[in-house]
């Protein structure tokens, strides 16, 4: 009986020591656990902490998925320089290489350096084939909407996109082609000829009518007061009239500039929202499902 008990104890202590070793290796900072935790943080969108945890792994082993996720984390945080460096550090042997290169190129676009993006795209496209070439081609074509360059032919432009996107893209194209901007110079000239006309041209109707009445009234009162010998009031009204007249010319030009800035802002915002929605036409890896 004693022997049996002894055997059991030895047996259990062996198992216990094995389990112990496993637990020691399996502590919270073991490689698999760091990875699990990092993935959890990444999916919780706690990107800074996720990147830090992934870095811990990279210090121990090389892993291209981890490298790619670090780059994505920096991208999500808006740290474009670091993200670009990380995407570019992914080597050609990696299965993420093409996507990383595409992301890196997209970053140039995202930073707003459209000219650089276009030249880099043309250079790379002529030298290397991309997995995501269709997406980058769409992005390249889309970039025309954000520059002052003349637009390509409508069909050529629209055909660079997928069928589901074509309608929206055609709308953008037409919007850009006949951009409803107005001329500040025209507004100033209109107001110089008829006070308030420039404001009406800038779609500010009430301001235009008010400016017209105020300038006319001040002008009339200047004339009338000088004529009646009330020089002091005459000078006051002449000051008012000149102020209204000049202010209205300047104000009309400024109103048109504000109008233009407003429609340009709306246009760019719509483009950006569309791009974000389409993830810049690039392939998306879903690491969280």
């Amino acid at each position: 009986m004693k022997n049996l008990f002894f055997i059991i104890l030895i047996f259990s202590s062996i198992i216990f020591s094995q389990e112990n070793n496993q637990l020691v290796n399996d502590n919270l900072f073991s490689l698999p656990n760091i990875k699990k935790f990092a993935d959890y943080l990444f999916c919780q969108k706690d990107y800074l902490r996720a990147a830090n945890e992934y870095e811990r792994i990279l210090n121990l082993v090389q892993n291209d998925t981890i490298e790619y996720k670090i780059a994505l984390s920096y991208l999500e945080m808006g740290n474009f320089n670091e993200a670009s460096t990380r995407f570019n550090s992914i080597t050609e042997s990696s299965s993420f290489y093409k996507s990383a290169q595409a992301q890196s190129l997209k970053l140039v676009f995202q930073i707003g350096d459209i000219v650089k993006f276009r030249s880099q795209y043309l250079y790379i496209n002529s030298n290397r084939a991309y997995l995501d070439s269709a997406g980058l081609a769409s992005l390249y074509m889309f970039s025309f909407l954000l520059t002052e360059e003349s637009l390509p032919n409508e069909d050529e432009f629209v055909n660079a996109f997928q069928i589901a996107e074509k309608n929206k893209i055609r709308n953008f194209y037409e919007w850009k082609k006949d951009f409803p901007e107005k001329s500040p110079l025209k507004a100033a000239i209109f107001s110089a000829i008829i006070p308030g006309a420039g404001k009406i041209y800038a779609d500010e109707y009430s301001d235009g009518i008010y400016a017209f009445i105020a300038t006319l009234a001040a002008g009339y009162l200047t004339y009338d007061n000088f004529k009646a010998g009330h020089d002091f009031r005459g000078w006051i009204f002449s000051g008012l009239a000149v102020g209204f007249y000049a202010g209205n010319i300047y104000g009309s030009a400024a109103a048109v500039q504000i109008y233009n800035a407003h429609i340009r802002f709306d246009f760019v915002n719509e483009l950006k929202a569309f791009l974000e929605d389409k993830n810049y036409f690039l392939q998306v890896f879903n690491f969280c499902n």
Binding site: I8, F11, S12, I15, F16, E19, N20, L23
Partner: peptide, 18 residues
């Protein structure tokens, strides 16, 4: 009784350790 000893001699330390 023996099974009881065996079971707890393995499980309790694991649980405590984790």
């Amino acid at each position: 009784y023996l099974k009881f000893i065996l079971f707890f001699s393995i499980l309790i330390p694991i649980k405590l350790f984790s």
